[in-house]
Design a protein around this nucleic acid. Structure first.
Length: 275
DNA sequence: GGGTGGCCTGTTATTACTTCA
DNA sequence: GATGAAGTAATAACAGGCCAC
C-alpha cells in the first residue's frame, strides 16, 4: 500500500498534540509546571489548543521573561493561524501536516507520518545544515505546514539516526581492523618463529619483503578519524611508528599538535605500555 | 547562582510492512 | 488466494540531562 494514501486518509484536520511551539516546549512546560502551582499529575499529552489556552491564561508562563513570553505567544498565535489555514495546505503537501487527530478519549498521542515531499525537503535542508537556527526553523515549518517543534524534533531524530549509522559504520570498520590486526599478529608470530629458527642456520639471504615493497601495518593505514584520545593519559596519542611512516598522519598530527608539546596518537589496538 | 534555550540520548508510542498459520 | 494475528522495523514524539549563555 502506498504510504501517501494512508497519509492522506483522515489527517487533514490538523489538530496538534503537545504544543507550546518553538524551542524545547516540553521541557519548558515541565519547568513552568514545576515553578507554578500546576498539578504535577496533569497529563503531558494534551491537544495544543487547551494547552495553549492554559499557557495564555497566565499560570504557565509566570517564570518566563517578558521577551520570551512575547515570543512564545507569537509562536502560539502563528500556530493557531496555521491550524485555521491548514486544510488548504494539507492538500498541497498531502496531509500529515501540523498535528494529529484527537482520539475519542483525547489522551493518546497520534504519530504522524510525514509525506514524501515533506521528508524530501527536510532531507535537503539537513544536507545543507544539520542544525537550524530559530528563524530557519520557523520558515521551514511554515513551508512544510508543520509546527516548528515538529521540524525541531525531526532534525533531532535525524541527527541521532545519522550518528547511529556512523557508529555502525565505525564499528564495522573497527571490526575489520581487529581482524586484520589479528591476522598481522599471526604473520608476525610466524616471522618471529622463522627468524629464531634462522639463528641456527647459515647466513640468510636478504629478506623477501623489502621495506618499500611490504605493505605498512594495517594500523598505519587508519584514517585520522579513527585516532582518538588515549583513555589512559587523556591526550591525543602519538604513535611514533605511525608518525614516522605515514604522511597523512604527519599532516594530521601537525594540525592538532598542541603548542610546545608532543603527543601521540592513540591506537586502541596497539596501545599498551606506551602511556 | 539561577533561569533559559539548544542539543543529545534514551525511551515510548504509533504506523507500515512482513510473515505465517 | 484471502485473511487476520503476531512480529518487526522505522520513526515521530517525548522526557530528562548537560552545557553554554
Amino acid at each position: 500500500m502506498a504510504q501517501e494514501e494512508v497519509h492522506d486518509a483522515g489527517l487533514a484536520l490538523g489538530l496538534s498534540l503537545g504544543g507550546g511551539g518553538g524551542g524545547d516546549s516540553s521541557r519548558r512546560r515541565r519547568r513552568e509546571a514545576s515553578s507554578s502551582q500546576q498539578c504535577p499529575l496533569e497529563p503531558s499529552l494534551t491537544l495544543s489548543m487547551p494547552d495553549d489556552a492554559a499557557t495564555l491564561s497566565g499560570g504557565g508562563v509566570s517564570s518566563m521573561s517578558a521577551v520570551k513570553r512575547e515570543r512564545a505567544e507569537e509562536e502560539e498565535e502563528e500556530e493557531a493561524a496555521e491550524m485555521v489555514s491548514s486544510t488548504a495546505l494539507q492538500a498541497a503537501f498531502g496531509g500529515a501536516g501540523a498535528g494529529a487527530e484527537e482520539d475519542d478519549d483525547g489522551s493518546t498521542r497520534k504519530k504522524l507520518r510525514l509525506t514524501k515531499e515533506q521528508s524530501a525537503l527536510l532531507e535537503d535542508r539537513f544536507k545543507e545544515h544539520s542544525t537550524l537556527n530559530p528563524k530557519q526553523k520557523v520558515a521551514l515549518a511554515k513551508q512544510l505546514n508543520l509546527r516548528p517543534r515538529q521540524v525541531e524534533v525531526w532534525f533531532q531524530n535525524r541527527r541521532a539516526r545519522t550518528k547511529l549509522k556512523q557508529t555502525e559504520v565505525d564499528c564495522e570498520f573497527l571490526k575489520r581492523c581487529c581482524e586484520n590486526l589479528t591476522e598481522e599478529n599471526r604473520r608476525l608470530q610466524r616471522e618471529l618463529h622463522e627468524l629464531r629458527a634462522l639463528k641456527f642456520a647459515p647466513p640468510p639471504p636478504p629478506p623477501p619483503l623489502s621495506a618499500a615493497a611490504a605493505p605498512p601495518p594495517f594500523y598505519m593505514q587508519l584514517p585520522a578519524a579513527t585516532l582518538t584520545i588515549c583513555p589512559s593519559c587523556e591526550r591525543l596519542g602519538g604513535s611514533t611508528a605511525a608518525n614516522a611512516t605515514n604522511n597523512t598522519s604527519k599532516a594530521v598530527d601537525s594540525d592538532v599538535r598542541p603548542k610546545g608539546g608532543t603527543h601521540h596518537f592513540f591506537n586502541p589496538f596497539t596501545h599498551s605500555a606506551a602511556c
